[in-house]
Design a binder for these strands. Structure first.
Lengths: 204, 204
DNA sequence: GCACATGACTTATGAGCGTTAGCTAGTCCC
DNA sequence: GGGACTAGCTAACGCTCATAAGTCATGTGC
């Protein structure tokens, strides 16, 4: 239970409520029922407080969603950049980027589900920002594929199609992965990295 | 605009409202804003009537969602069975099944978005039914892959992982495909069928 | 040991939701 | 031409929502 470790306990023994524990509870419930399907009263109940007390820690329900989405997309981009930074070879870049992306979707399932389902519920200035961030990521993958194709390492008709397929098959790991399943997150990520290289027809 | 062709016009010139036009309007809005994010008043407005008049054609909002999901999943299974029926070879079965599935997600984007996003909003007896229907489909794909592997046509570590990847990358076509884009639905479907065969390491 | 900040509480408000009831004006069939 | 049916309407319901305002106990720093 991650929420138990996020803050100190109050003297009377109850877990301390902070913006982080609120975000964590919201994340769990948004992932389960969706943003519009989750009531603030349910978030409050999960924390053992009344609904209005939530406003001691947050500004609005919408802001919770925005924080969750923004943080997640930021983390994804950082992940991607560090994953790619160490390599010059498009083959290893694509393998590493896919591995890290797949791994993240196995280990951060809640975040992935919320971002994929409820980003469109954000109001308009932010919605465009978030969409651009995702598009940046897609384009970066596409560029790697194009470079690999130019060097003759990959053989792919349409780089955009391949990058979509690679990203989206990884995203959906969050839909079915279970920690107590037969495969570890690392094993799944390694397999998916292989899938990616096969999709772009990498011939060693 | 498909809704224009769904029914006859009334004598006063307005498009006739039927359960089919209601479903069509609901489908569009659910796909756009999600089930919980769509108000009945918005569906009514799209049809040019007041909210309570909807109840002349339907029983409840939830029933609209259930009908949409059930019809879509039924169609997918029929699609799959006819796609596979003509072939004995797992290679051609997987190619045909993926092609049809991908094609459907390019040509029935709204249905795909609603099913993938809002099936979980169904009440419990139906939710399980729908989930089982999806699992049946996944298992059928997995069986094809396993058979191909047994015949030495495919070389895949984990058939389940491959079937998930194939299905989910196809599903997400609904997220980005545009009718007026550079590729036709058929072209995308053919590419994705190739992706599927590469994922399972088919060597002709 | 008092002052203050914190963070819970209760209570309330206004908006919007899905839904029901009851009415009315057309249309179709006999 | 009159009764049944269809499909719209207004009004109002009961509920839940997000949010606001004010109160009160508690723990910490001076």
């Amino acid at each position: 239970m991650p929420s138990a470790d996020l803050g100190a306990a109050t003297p009377d023994g109850r877990a301390a409520v902070t913006i982080e524990t609120v975000l964590d509870a919201a994340l769990t419930l948004f992932a389960e029922r969706g943003y519009h399907g989750t009531a603030l009263s349910e978030i409050a109940e999960a924390l053992g407080i009344r609904t209005p007390s939530l406003y001691n820690h947050m500004q609005s329900k919408q802001q919770l969603l925005e924080t969750i989405v923004r943080r997640t997309l930021d983390d994804v981009l950082v992940d991607f950049e560090t994953a790619v930074a160490g390599f010059d070879d498009p083959v290893e870049q694509l393998r590493s980027a896919t591995r890290v992306y797949a791994l993240r979707h196995a280990t951060h399932r809640r975040e992935a589900l919320v971002v994929n389902r409820d980003t469109t519920s954000l109001p308009e200035p932010q919605l465009t920002t978030m969409r651009e961030r995702r598009r940046d990521h897609e384009r970066a993958i596409r560029t790697i594929i194009t470079q690999g194709a130019e060097r003759g390492q990959f053989n792919v008709g349409n780089a955009g199609l391949a990058s979509f397929a690679i990203l989206e098959m990884s995203v959906s790991i969050a839909r079915w992965f279970r920690e107590d399943g037969p495969l570890t997150a690392e094993q799944v990520a390694d397999e998916y990295a292989d899938f990616a290289l096969r999709i772009v027809r990498y011939r060693p």
